[in-house]
Design a protein around this nucleic acid. Sequence first.
RNA 1: GGGUGCUUAGCUCAGCUGGUAGAGCAACGCCCUUACAAGGCGUGGGUCGGGGGUUCGAUCCCCUCAGCACCCA
Length: 959
Amino acid sequence: MNTDKTIDKAYEPHELEKHWYQTWEKSGYFAPSGKGEPYCIPLPPPNVTGSLHMGHGFGFTLVDVLIRYERMRGKNTLWQGGTDHAGIATQMVVERKLQLETKQSRHDLGREKFVDKIWEWKEESGGNISRQLRRMGASIDWERERFTMDEGMSHAVREVFIKLYEEGLIYRGKRLVNWDPVLLTAISDLEVTNEEEEGKLWHIRYPLADDASKHIIVATTRPETMLGDVAIAVHPDDERYQKLIGKQVKLPLTDRTIPIIADTYVDPLFGTGCVKITPAHDFNDYAVGERHKLTPINIFTPTAHINENAPEAYRGLERFVARKKIVADLEALELIDKIDKHKLKVPRGDRSQAVIEPYLTWQWYVKSKVLAEPAIRAVEKGDVRFIPENWNKTYFQWMNNIEDWCISRQLWWGHRIPVWYDESGKSYVGQDEADARKRNKLAADVKLTQDEDVLDTWFSSALWPFSTLGWPEKTPEFNTFFPTSTLVTGFDIIFFWVARMVMMSLKFTGKVPFKDVYITGLIRDSEGHKMSKSKGNVLDPIDLIDGISLDDLVAKRTYGLMQPAMAQKIEKTTRKEFPEGIPSFGTDALRFTFCSVASYTREIRFDVNRLGGYRNFCNKLWNAARYVMMNVGTTLDPDFRRDDTIASSSDDTIASSSRRKPGSSELSLPDRWILSRLQRTIQEAHKQLAVYRFDLFAQTIYDFIWNEYCDWYLELSKPILTTVNYSQEMQRGTRYTLVTVLENILRLLHPIMPFITEDIWQRIAPLAGVKGKTIMLQPYPEVIKDKINDEAEAELEWLKSIIVAVRTIRSEMNIPPGKQLPVLLRKGNDKDKKYLSAHQHSLQTLAKLESINWLKADETPPPAATAFVGELEIYIPFSGFIIKEEETARLNREIGKLDKELTALKTKLGNAQFVDRAPAEVVAKERARLDDIEATLVKLRSQMRALQNAAEPSRPAAG
RNA sequence: GGGUGCUUAGCUCAGCUGGUAGAGCAACGCCCUUACAAGGCGUGGGUCGGGGGUUCGAUCCCCUCAGCACCCA
């Protein structure tokens, strides 16, 4: 391998990506221009817990595409970036780190020191995240980067809390919450996941108080909570238990008796139709307890151990240990009727995976129904628009059934609740203690203590679109950029985040937070599984950019697992999926891949193989640019100006161009064609991006670059530039078009592939007469309508079809691509003749023809391979390379295909219903097609006959 | 239990307001043609999950069944 040359020839992303990002950032190109219509996207702030994953890479790439596009379109564009403190997640990470490194718990350290530790971690981790974002090419305005616990953000959080409190929309209540007995905090409904697990249904006998020989049987999935039972409930209409309602039963293992009550909540068909009521430990029971004015008995400590409210025998036992002992004791007393297998939904904390305990505590809540109403209307009215549209159903469903939001968390990391209590427990709110005193006119000697808890992380996230812009101050940024334009996020956080932003924003700014919400799919692995550390199937976007060896990848995936036993399995599947590790693809290829998978579907199986194709695409573009530079020269032709209108001629003959003035240019057919195709591409690109079809946007540009510009236009430019058959004017026109279209392509593609386009543009722009420091701030291509040229497109299609026809014959006959062939033409209409005389040279070059000769219309062609393009007949006479059998077989295949279609068409057109009822144009189209096929078949069949009569030609004397 | 998606070529996916299907990758054949072998030029491959309905005509609209996935309770 000739390394020196290939390095020069090949596209090498790394250096260029690093170089250009630094240049952009240093030059301040990411900041809003201050001119034009405002356009703003708030970055969904990644958690400072760690590093960016594929989902981030995906979403942020799409945002960057939008941002770069709108910036180039001249809008005053702001990508507002930052990170989220992510209360529980971050606290857990740092706690674990502390435990590993110093064997200390956060309690050993104390609140203040522990929070300091987290801040240290935040600096490190936040830095990591912004490094990764930079590698991705994200054009975030770093000057304006925010963190949800910045002073400004915190001020906004307290402001919102105070206002809601003062309006009675925030209240403190003692009620059941989802309690995480491992993390020792309440969590919201949304943070609980319910998964079906194998469990048991215990049937327990509760003896009647007045007659211990009789008993009532209760079915339960949680026998240990019986120690907190306050009643047995039956359905009021359940005939089996009518007589027992109002009686007392003896609660086994305790010395308490409890009543039998009637409540419609009970499902008579489930279990025995009798339900134990444990208001302190079950959400439904709590409601029943309230209805019947029963006092809940809490039997658990915060860590879910049995507390002093239970009989001494069980105190101090962990809940599942207690369950075993209780069941054993009941069995000993012969109070277990039976034990059935039973599937049940087990609630687990989404962070800790601990089984969640419904637990009676004091917590702060936001009244949600009032806030939800305007938020529902905003989407109904279309002030906020979901894309794809059907996500609004999901949104409505949640919003219409919204429950109050538990916002307090028993954590140390987060926004401390701005509430102070006096010694009687009365609460006062304020920005700080002094403010709380002032607001409530409290004397200096009133002792106040602040609430120990912090707010749910999503409370501050809900303010993100406006708090980052300086709210509650009336900053210029807020006035300019709010409401923001678009939010790009995954459907997994519609409830957590999107809905709450809409609610809070309407409440506090009176405006929606954003107009469009583009909901992305979720990135999954190639098997369709969710990517997660514990499954060991995560991919780091940076590893796709830089590449990673198999061993490093295995090490990375198996490091620090919660379940080390998984390591072996993970290693095995990793080695199988990536036997060679992952090669380096560069950022641009990764970004293009992300765009190309961004359709409206909700699950995206990420296939690393696609990256290779798009890296190749980079290489293609790179080499196309090399070709252009080789042919255009290194200095600007003074006649070239961007989007210059250059005289066009209707044909490419040398004669017609001699009329031009010296120094002027003339556009050839390929020039006019590619300029026209460029316009259509630009049009389509705008159209697709307007509806957030990043996949079609990317595909449109890809197709144009590869299949039209490279495959056809560059090839067609070769004969013009390299032979003397063409005038200088025309060569100049071709050079102009080469460089102009390339310059347009680069701008078109820049939002997706910012690095390679900038790198090439820097060299191309001067040759195209374009001035500017960076492609980033160049105008995005707009359609120039009068360059759309239907005639040129039709004419070039004609040329292509002739070339393709010859190539197909050549390929099907296994004739080497380089072998020059003689071609005979027959019949054809005036247009065929005119086009042919104009483009003979191009045709000859691209189809590799030795000669082109016309036969008279009535002349019998020699034995030959044949193709028909409209009325034109193409013959490639038999030679050593073309043999009768192959051509016979080929013709047969062709006839077979057309015959089948003909039959179908005939039946269709023979159907009176179709002819009568279908639109005339559809019928006419089918008729034309029928005629076309029939004509072709006649020709093919006659060719077949001719072939059968022909003798095998003698091999040419010289090969 | 309620809801939302998905099922199209070997794989991953497009398919606009209904007019009998496309791309990329993979496969196969021929080529190292002076931008690119990370390439060029061609080729093969699909009863569009099953059934029913509406329609002249259904991958597309409606119903139903099956499988898969997710969300809410």
